[in-house]
């Protein structure tokens, strides 16, 4: 039985599903900017907001985090490097490596920020259809001279469409390799090579088939886009988010 990956749209009727895509893109940019500038208290407020959004979308945060195992490798790396390279009072020492209290604290904040970014991205992708994303990006790019907004929007929306496919195929290849004892192999470089070569081959084959399928259905950049209607509730939600943003920024 197939399963949806965390980066996939989930149909629904929640407020986030119905919100105008332009507001959603603005909110996403705002949340990302806040996440990178917020302090501990600001991050607590922001995380609370994201938890509320997850609850509204009826997506389990724990399951989502469990599916983001690869992210935790990045977080461990970030935490490690920040702990070692930030000057401060030493907490532990392993040979020439000194872990400082300030470094550990700063690393933890960076990790928190990264998790916030990922969760905000997942909320956006889970509640916004690909055609909506395309129309929204197109609308934002239209006033900018020299940018072929339709082409760029199609490329970004296809990337969003393709991400779950890549994850699914990575999962299938990983299972197939595990079933043939790939975990016994200790050399991580060899394991990565054995994993990535078939993954890339399959991704390119799938991309090829997707292009054929789209072409066979008369795909063109000049297609009917979904209607975008800015409702008063969208504007109110934006005002609330901006006020919250100012509060978080000043905390």
């Amino acid at each position: 039985m197939a399963q949806l990956t965390v980066f996939e749209y989930r149909a629904g009727t929640s407020f986030l599903h119905q919100q105008d895509v332009r507001c959603k893109i603005t909110s996403l940019i705002l949340i990302n900017a806040l996440a990178f500038n917020a302090t501990h208290i600001g991050l607590i407020v922001l995380s609370g907001l994201l938890i509320l959004m997850f609850l509204q979308l009826r997506i389990s945060i724990l399951t989502t985090l469990r599916n983001l195992r690869l992210l935790f490798l990045i977080l461990v790396f970030v935490l490690g490097t920040r702990s070692i390279y930030t000057q401060g009072d030493p907490l532990f020492q392993f040979g020439f490596l000194v872990i400082t209290g300030q470094g550990l604290q700063s690393g933890a904040v960076y990790c928190w920020r990264l998790i916030t970014l990922f969760l905000a991205g997942i909320i956006f992708v889970s509640s916004t259809g690909i055609t909506e994303i395309k129309s929204g990006i197109q609308w934002f790019l239209k006033p900018l001279p020299g940018i072929p907004e339709r082409k760029v929007a199609v490329m970004i929306s296809l990337m969003v469409r393709f991400l779950p496919l890549v994850l699914q195929q990575a999962g299938e290849i990983s299972e197939a390799q595990k079933s043939r004892g790939a975990e016994i192999r200790k050399n991580p470089v060899k394991r990565l090579t054995l994993f990535s070569v078939p993954l890339f081959r399959r991704v390119f084959e799938t991309a090829d088939r997707l292009v054929l399928a789209m072409e066979s259905r008369c795909f063109s950049e000049n297609r009917t886009d979904p209607q975008m209607k800015l409702k008063s509730v969208d504007l109110i939600s934006m005002v609330i988010l901006f006020v919250l943003g100012i509060i978080i920024f000043t905390l």
Partner: peptide
């Protein structure tokens, strides 16, 4: 090519403008 059944069916007619 789309995220829901209905959106997938609409893909062709949308391409026809």
């Amino acid at each position: 090519v789309a995220e829901t059944v209905a959106a997938d069916v609409a893909f062709g007619p949308e391409n026809l403008g």
